Amino acid sequence: MLLKYVNLLLLGLLLLASGCSPIPCDAGFSADELAEAAVGQQYSKKIEILKGAMPNENNINWDIVPENTGITITRLIDDNSRNSFYKGVLISGVPKFQGNIAIRIYGFSYSSKTCAFDKTFTLKVNP
């Protein structure tokens, strides 16, 4: 966990030293919202980030609030990439309780520039 933050800090310092920084842009997600879930039933949703290349796992990060909801996130690898770059996330699990779960997906990708992305999805869990 600490290594993730150290890598992000080093990248930020490198970008500042070179006179550029990640630029907020519309990286584009394959979904604008999440389908509703139900307590005790399996949930699964893939979300791809549509712009740029993400060569290491630190390019895609997330927060889930509240914690311990039964929902987990894993990174997806692009099967079409020669270098096994990352392409998005899989949100899955069995929700433990009713209510809303905030899922923030953030990070950066590379194309002709470094592109930052940050989006919070709401997963509504019904009884």
Rank of each mutant, 00 (worst) to 15 (best):
I101A: 05
D26S: 10
W62K: 11
I77R: 12
C20D: 12
L15E: 09
Y5T: 13
A102C: 02
A35T: 13
A17V: 09
M54E: 02
A38E: 09
I105E: 01
E57F: 10
L34F: 08
S109Y: 05
S18E: 14
I71N: 02
L16T: 12
T74D: 12
I60D: 03
A27H: 05
R104C: 00
L9S: 07
L13W: 15
G40A: 07
I77K: 11
N80H: 15
F97N: 12
V65A: 12
S18K: 14
I71H: 02
S18P: 03
Q42D: 07
L50H: 07
I101V: 13
I101D: 04
I73G: 00
N83V: 09
F29V: 03
A38C: 09
G52Q: 05
L50Y: 08
E36M: 08
S44E: 12
R75E: 10
T114E: 02
S18M: 13
I49C: 01
Y5E: 14
P55G: 02
Y43E: 04
I47M: 00
I60C: 03
A27K: 08
L14F: 12
Y106A: 04
E48F: 13
S21K: 14
A31F: 02
W62V: 03
F108L: 11
F29A: 00
R75K: 14
K45H: 08
S30Y: 09
S30H: 07
W62E: 06
I60Y: 07
G99L: 15
G28R: 13
P22H: 10
K96I: 01
D78Y: 09
L76P: 05
S18R: 15
L10Y: 04
S111I: 00
V6C: 06
P66C: 08
L90I: 06
E33P: 04
C115M: 10
I91T: 07
A17H: 12
S84Y: 02
T69H: 15
D32G: 15
P95K: 10
I71C: 00
I101Q: 06
S112A: 04
S21P: 01
R82G: 02
A31I: 02
K51V: 00
G12T: 13
G107N: 05
A35I: 13
S111W: 03
C25T: 06
F85N: 05
T69K: 15
G52P: 00
I73C: 02
G88N: 03
A116G: 05
K113H: 12
K4V: 10
I47S: 00
F29H: 06
A27F: 01
L90C: 06
Q41A: 00
C20F: 15
N100R: 13
L3Q: 12
K46G: 01
R82P: 03
I73M: 06
